[in-house]
């Protein structure tokens, strides 16, 4: 059963550009930016869906409309039976929202104090709050940091606190906007594990936006790709992974001017003296096998393993889609 449905949702931003000088006071140029240009989709209960796309694609705007922050220019949406922009307050009790680049915690105080305030904001009774907080603290391993000022925590610890803060009122739908942005690999892994395990155990629906293809692969079972405000692809992650997500970039800095690797699924992308970049299709060869083969050549000074940039993945999806 769909708990979230969107039909022909559209959002334009309007702003006024004043001309320079005194004439600008009277001569105004109204510009319109089409952020979302008519998207439609449904999300079922317990689904974990990633909305991805390059910068300015309309992901965050979509999330803001679905969480009740923004009113659309046109179109319809129902989230848990509510029209988000008309029934914002009723909906707020049922959803949890995390903005990766914003905080809802008081950074000078321990997270425990912010959690206590959120209990009042969401009208949660003390017994339910205590039970939920204990569960989340245990599941997320927050015990040792709960009484430290948030500003002294690492980014990863802070993000774990942010997610706990969004779950204390027991929402059935979680909106996560770039939840792993700026985190190191270990912290990202911890956040992904937590989202996947917690959502699975509690039967929560998750809608996530991210720039990181690993967030999508490891957390979500469905991907909606948005580009220039339109849905380009809407399909299961497995399907997308087979086509587009199973690639890694391995960059080798070497003493020798060039490193040659002859492995299946490994292609040279760019190279300049002492620096080689290989694209690895992990379905054909694992990344560790590539690293092993490179080290066997000797003289390797540095190795970097990265996911292809989201812009590239989206472009590939977009091109493949147009070719059909």
């Amino acid at each position: 059963m769909a708990i979230l449905s969107v039909e022909s949702l559209r959002k334009d931003y309007r702003y006024v550009r004043r001309r320079p000088g005194l004439s600008g006071l009277f001569d105004r140029d109204i510009r319109t930016v089409k952020a979302v240009t008519g998207i439609s989709f449904e999300i079922a209960e317990r689904e974990r869906v990633a909305i991805i796309g390059p910068n300015g694609a309309g992901k965050s705007t979509t999330l803001k409309m679905l969480s009740g922050i923004l009113e659309p220019t046109d179109g319809a949406a129902a989230v848990l039976g509510f029209v988000p922009w008309k029934q914002r307050r009723q909906l707020a009790y049922r959803i949890g929202v995390v903005f990766g680049q914003r905080t809802q915690l008081w950074t000078e105080l321990p997270a425990r104090d912010s959690f206590a305030l959120l209990r009042r904001i969401y009208d949660v009774d003390q017994a339910t709050f205590d039970r939920r907080l204990n569960q989340l603290v245990e599941r997320f391993g927050l015990g040792p940091i709960l009484d430290q000022p948030v500003q002294r925590l690492s980014l990863g610890q802070r993000m774990r606190c942010e997610i706990v803060a969004s779950l204390l009122h027991g929402p059935s739908l979680l909106f996560l906007d770039e939840p792993t942005i700026g985190l190191d690999i270990t912290a990202k892994a911890a956040i992904r594990d937590f989202i996947r395990e917690h959502a699975g155990a509690e039967g929560q629906t998750v809608v996530l936006t991210s720039h990181d293809t690993r967030d999508i692969e490891l957390v979500c079972d469905r991907v909606i790709v948005i580009n220039e405000g339109r849905i380009v692809v809407d399909q299961p992650t497995d399907q997308l992974r087979r086509q587009f997500l199973g690639h890694r970039l391995v960059t080798l800095r070497s003493a020798a001017p060039e490193i040659a690797l002859d492995l299946p699924g490994v292609t040279r992308r760019t190279s300049e003296p002492h620096l080689s970049v290989f694209e690895v299709d992990t379905r054909a060869t694992r990344v560790d096998a590539v690293v092993e083969a490179a080290l066997a050549k000797g003289g390797i000074e540095d190795i970097t393993i990265e996911d292809p940039p989201m812009e590239e993945v989206v472009r590939a999806i977009y091109d493949a889609n147009r070719a059909r």
């Binding site: 803001k64 969480s67 009740g68 922050i69 914002r88 307050r89 009723q90 707020a92 009790y93 959803i95 929202v97 903005f99 914003r102 905080t103 809802q104 904001i121 969401y122 009208d123 909106f175």
Partner: peptide, 12 residues
């Protein structure tokens, strides 16, 4: 700074 976004997702 757009910091009211977070408040708009809360019920008060």
């Amino acid at each position: 700074r757009g910091e009211i976004d977070a408040l708009l997702t809360q019920p008060k």
